[in-house]
């Protein structure tokens, strides 16, 4: 009798256990699988696009370097760029790019860093709440608008100051306006770096009788230096790759010159002009833009890698 009850209980327990096991059993979740696949696809698109771009640039560049009369040495060392008559010296384009970039950074670095120091060390919450949105608006202006600003405002201004020697298209005007365009980027990245400096460090400085300026310049900025350098490098990379402003305001037609008042075509400006024009396929002009594109791609990639490294190192110091 007693045995029977025990047996029944055991059976009941077993069936209960089975119920639990059944509940725990793995079941297919179609939605989950689908979403995971979709999200992977989203990530994969950008990866495959990058691979595709690199492949295409490489393939077409190879075509360019295989053309008669084109050598890598000549490409990288000569200063005259006229592919139609067999002159493949990319230095004139590089030079124009470097000049506009230099002018841009001469504007963006001091102003951007100054604004960042003001925002993070001096500004009252009220001043911040006004200045930050304004900077964001500046960052949102389409570059074609900047291009027209350079052409119709900055260039006349430069002509008013320096006289007729300033050509209608010139690298200085394009560079300065590009600097204004990059300013918000340099400012907000630098400000992030400055704000990440722990408050305890500022307090240490103030506790020693330091003024706000001494604290900002001698303690906070050095502590945030790698972040600021990263901002600067990213700004350079932005300036090197910027197209619309230089295409509109720096001039078209390669010109190897160090005179900031003269027109000179940058690498990006040249690519924009050729790819928008009616140059036929497999001509030196057409193929050359891929070689220049590859050059641009490599240099900005390099700059971005350096800046990422710096930001990572900077994060390590205080975390």
């Amino acid at each position: 009798m007693e045995n029977q009850i025990v047996k029944q209980q055991v059976i009941r327990m077993e069936s209960a256990e089975q119920l639990v096991i059944h509940k725990l059993r793995k079941r297919p979740r179609l939605g989950e699988t689908f979403i995971q696949g979709f999200l992977f696809f989203c990530g994969a698109v950008s990866i495959f696009t990058t691979i595709g771009i690199v492949f295409e640039l490489g393939k077409e560049s190879l075509l360019f370097f295989q053309m008669p009369g084109v050598t890598l040495v000549e490409f990288l060392t000569k200063t005259e760029w006229q592919p139609t008559i067999g002159k493949f010296g990319v230095l004139s384009l590089i030079n124009a790019t470097l000049m506009t970039t230099l002018f841009a950074m001469l504007v963006a670095l001091p102003l951007g860093l100054g604004a960042a120091i003001y925002l993070s060390e001096y500004a009252t919450p009220r001043a911040r709440s006004i200045l930050k949105p304004v900077l964001e608006v500046l960052a949102g202006v389409p570059t074609v608008v900047y291009g027209f600003f350079a052409l119709t405002t900055m260039t006349p201004l430069l002509r008013a100051i320096f006289g007729e020697q300033v050509q209608v298209y010139n690298t200085l005007s394009a560079g300065l306006v590009m600097g204004i365009m990059i300013l918000p980027l340099v400012c907000s990245m630098s400000e992030d770096a400055l704000s990440a400096v722990p408050r305890s460090l500022r307090e240490a400085a103030y506790g020693l009788g330091a003024t706000r300026l001494e604290t900002a310049v001698q303690v906070v900025v050095p502590a945030a230096l790698s972040g600021i350098i990263a901002a600067f490098i990213l700004g350079v990379s932005r300036a090197v790759g910027e197209t619309m402003i230089v295409a509109l305001a720096a001039g078209s037609g390669p010109n190897f010159t160090f005179d900031p008042f003269q027109a000179a075509e940058t690498m990006t400006g040249y690519i924009a002009r050729i790819s928008g024009g009616d140059v036929s396929y497999d001509t030196p002009d057409y193929n050359s833009i891929f070689a220049i594109g590859l050059l641009l791609f490599t240099s900005t990639l390099l700059l971005n890698v350096i800046s990422r490294r710096l930001v990572a190192r900077f994060r390590e110091v205080y975390e």
Binding site: S200, L201, E203, A204, L208, G209, A210, E214, V219, A223
Partner: peptide, 26 residues
């Protein structure tokens, strides 16, 4: 009236400069 804080907060500078900085700015 100087101050020492809860968490040690030396500057990310050399030992020498940590000590010298406050004196120098003053």
């Amino acid at each position: 009236i100087g101050m020492v804080f809860q968490k040690p907060n030396p500057f990310p500078k050399s030992i020498y400069d940590n000590v010298a900085w406050g004196a120098r700015i003053n």
